[in-house]
Design a protein around this nucleic acid. Structure first.
Lengths: 116, 116
DNA sequence: CAAGATGTGTAGTATGTTCTACGCACTATA
DNA sequence: TATAGTGCGTAGAACATACTACACATCTTG
């Protein structure tokens, strides 16, 4: 797990202007200790909690869902959607597993356009 | 959280033949201590881990996804499906949120029938 | 009425998660 | 060449999760 979260964050951070995106500055804006961020980026420490990942994503302009996935997690709001209709959504997800992205995108459009 | 998991399990268990579904017997077959199951059913203790919930579901003939939802959890295999394509599936789930069940069921059929 | 079965109370443990605090050596800057 | 900034190392804390072990009073059954 977390095979890539840390290094990915590091790479994304270092791709930004060094001055404003030093490890210390980013840690400061995210609200965690620099040593903690350092360990996370090097994979010495497992990824942080969801809230912290969300703030990192915002700071680096990354997709929170993707970052959470790299951390082996799933956003709490998605979990809630599943828990509200477990049987139905579970079936949907298991059906969607392995289906080509095109078909899923199409289904999304259909569900959205059908309701208003 | 777990507003109903414990009491629900108790009710389901007590709806079964008492002899074979005493708290001790069920706990035994599930592989946990009776006192632990007792506390869980009375809501004194939060719901157990996913593995244990799965075994309880199997034992009582309940839908694991529903039981997990009552416990405030989501099955690990569903989480994996999301993590494999986070952006796409996240969009699907957020679109599906609030949509009528009929439309979702229809989408499921379409995705399944479209591929083979 | 003895023997076993029932549910429960109390106490404690092992492990994981999510961080903080502080100091150090190196490097770039002024 | 002081000064400030950089990333990293070490230590540990606070809290949550997921349980086990055992004893006890009551209740049923043979």
């Amino acid at each position: 797990m977390s095979l890539a979260f840390g290094p990915y964050v590091r790479e994304r951070r270092e791709a930004k202007p060094a001055k404003e995106f030093s490890l210390r500055r980013v840690a400061g804006r995210v609200g965690i200790e620099p040593s903690y961020l350092s360990k996370i980026e090097r994979g010495e420490q497992p990824p942080p909690g969801e809230e912290t990942i969300q703030r990192i994503a915002r700071e680096l302009g990354e997709d929170p869902d993707v970052l959470l996935a790299l951390a082996g997690k799933v956003s709490a709001d998605l979990l809630k959607i599943i828990r509200e209709r477990p049987a139905l959504i579970a079936e949907l997800l298991r059906t969607v597993q392995g289906a080509p992205a095109k078909r899923i995108t199409h289904a999304v459009r259909e569900i959205r356009d059908g309701e208003w």
